[in-house]
Amino acid sequence: MIKSEPPEGCSASPIDEGNLLVWQATVVGPTDSEWEGGIFSLRFTFTERYPEKPPRVRFCSEMFHPNVYQDGSLCMDVLSDQWSPCHNISTLLTSIQSLLTDPNCSSPANPEAASLYLHDRAAYKK
């Protein structure tokens, strides 16, 4: 489904057709967000327990965002305690685009980015 009907502004495919557990994805920065116009790379790493367990998802692009750890890993409830086997790469990419537009500053992976986002948006945008 991701190859035939990807979410708007997203794409994903296995890095190597011989290993379907590691995927490369791209997300275009959503319109009307600080990320507009950017193209961001992500890596999805699945385990043999998928879809029972979520994949590990991290940005390969450097990101200064309230919900992105320094190593690029994402802090998203859908990738941890709110995981459900109904999620797939398309729903995760859509959730990531949404997170770029509307960060969750109440549970930050990057407290500095969260503080700037909430209190000094001009400095955050730099």
Results as ranks from 00 to 15, higher is better:
L99M: 08
S73E: 08
L93M: 13
S11M: 13
P111E: 06
N67G: 03
G72R: 07
K125A: 15
P30T: 05
G29S: 09
I2Q: 13
E34V: 12
E34A: 14
F44W: 09
D120V: 06
C10S: 14
M76F: 02
A109G: 00
P51W: 02
P85A: 08
P6T: 15
D77Q: 10
G18K: 12
S11H: 14
C105N: 09
P85Q: 07
H87Y: 13
T101L: 13
S4Y: 13
M1A: 15
S106I: 09
S4E: 15
L21S: 11
A12L: 14
A114Q: 00
E52Q: 15
N104C: 11
P51I: 04
P30C: 08
P6E: 15
S13W: 14
L21H: 08
L79A: 00
S95M: 05
L74I: 00
P54K: 00
S13A: 15
Q70M: 02
T47V: 07
P14D: 10
Y117H: 06
L93N: 09
H87M: 09
R58T: 00
R56D: 04
H119L: 12
L118C: 11
H119C: 11
P54F: 05
L79D: 03
C86T: 08
P30D: 01
P108V: 01
L93H: 07
A25I: 07
G37Q: 06
M76Y: 01
Y117S: 09
S61V: 01
N19M: 12
A109F: 04
T94G: 10
E17A: 15
A25N: 07
S84M: 09
C75M: 05
W83V: 06
P55Y: 02
